[in-house]
Structure formats: C-alpha cells, structure tokens
Amino acid sequence: MKILVCISNVPDTTAKINFTPDNKEFVSAGVTFILNPYDEIALSKAVDLAAGGGNVTVINVGDASTEPTIRKALAIGANDAVRINAPARDSFFVATQIAEYVKKNPVDMILCGRESADHNGSTVPVMIAELLGIPCVLFAKSLLLEANTATLDCEIEGGKQVVNVPLPFVAGASEGMAEWKIPNMRGIMSARTKPLSVIDPVDVAVHTRHHSFDKPATRSAVKMVSADAVEQLFELIRDEKKVI
C-alpha cells in the first residue's frame, strides 16, 4: 500500500494576517507556519492505513522554507518526503507538479486536506484527480479500505453520501476521518534522518495571476441590547439592517 499525502505550509490558525502597504504581498515576518490542519488529518489517516506494512510519502510544492513543516509530517509518521522546489504559484501549478510526480511514481491512494487554511479553494485535490483521470472524494469524513475498493462518507448539501471508489483515487479529508496524531519523541528524532528528496518542477503555463489582497472592513461599534428587552430584537434588525 503506497499512499501519497499532499501537504501545505500555512499560517498558524491564530495568526493575524497582514499585507505589504501596496496590498500585493502577504507579510510572513512574525507569522508561525504550520502543517495545514486538514492535511494533518489526511496524514494521520494515511499513517493508520499504512500501519500494517505500507509506505506514506508526503509531498509539498514549495521553497526551502517549508522544510520544518515537512519534518513535522515525518515526525507524525510519514516514511519519506518529496519537496518540489518551486513557490506554489496557483492551484493548477501545484496540482500539475503533483500529478506529474505520481505519473512517474504511481501510488494506491492520494490523500489531501479538504482545503488549505490560506487559499481555502479545495481545488488542488480535484485537479490532481482530473489530471490523472481518477476519482476524487472531497469532504471525506471517513475512509474504509477493503481490497481494491474504498468506502468513504462525504459531506453533501444538507446531508451525507456513502460512495465506493476503486483504487487509485484522491480524497480530501474533513474532520472526523482520523484522530490527530501528536508526534512522540521517537518520531521527532527519527524525522531528522528520514529521506527528504528535493526535485525540480516541471514547466507549466498558469492561467491565473495573483493581483492583490484586501482586509474586510471593520464593523461599526456593537449595539448592546438589554437581556430584558430582546422581544424587539428581530424588528430592530429588520428596521436597521434590512436583512430579514
């Protein structure tokens, strides 16, 4: 069983987000970067599935600054790692790099987080699957493997769906697929010496270009309503905000 887990290096969920004065670039100074929380769920599941004698490879598209996060993934239990040495330009660029790697190094399963905490697109897992011509189950809450078929529960509008997919496939992990694993001392020590290969990206023309950032407008001051006067709350919201 060969499992590939795609990981992103993202700002810590508690980080305050700031941009350069021209709003063109994200300011990373003073921001802690972490393994994307959903990717961590995917990785935890992969480590569980491989416990009976499989191999888990983590792959990241990024420059050398992502290596501490890759080592964290190795500490959690991945066997080896690949870094494709290029900044992640857009989701098509990232998905193409990973799909090209998989064409040369076939796997039984590709697990990703359902979305990344920076761009939140949920696009990379789907694009990898499309580029490889295989199924993708996004928003997967559970994954059960039997021989060459996987059964997954996934979120849909107003409910859930149970699907069967043949191997190989891509899944986007949601909460519930696995318990988060906390690296132990042995994992942390062994992560330092596990193989991390750095490979060059393939050439690909991107179709999108980042333009700029902006921050949401701050809300006007909160209007306090006495707990004894909530009877008119909905009329108040209707009259003042016209949203209901």
Binding site: P11, K16, A117, D118, S212, D214
Partner: peptide, 8 residues
C-alpha cells in the same frame, strides 16, 4: 486566509 482577508 480563512475569512481573515480577501484576495483578488
């Protein structure tokens, strides 16, 4: 950034 910003 999970709702903390907008990207263009």
């Amino acid at each position: 950034y999970s709702g903390k910003a907008y990207a263009y």
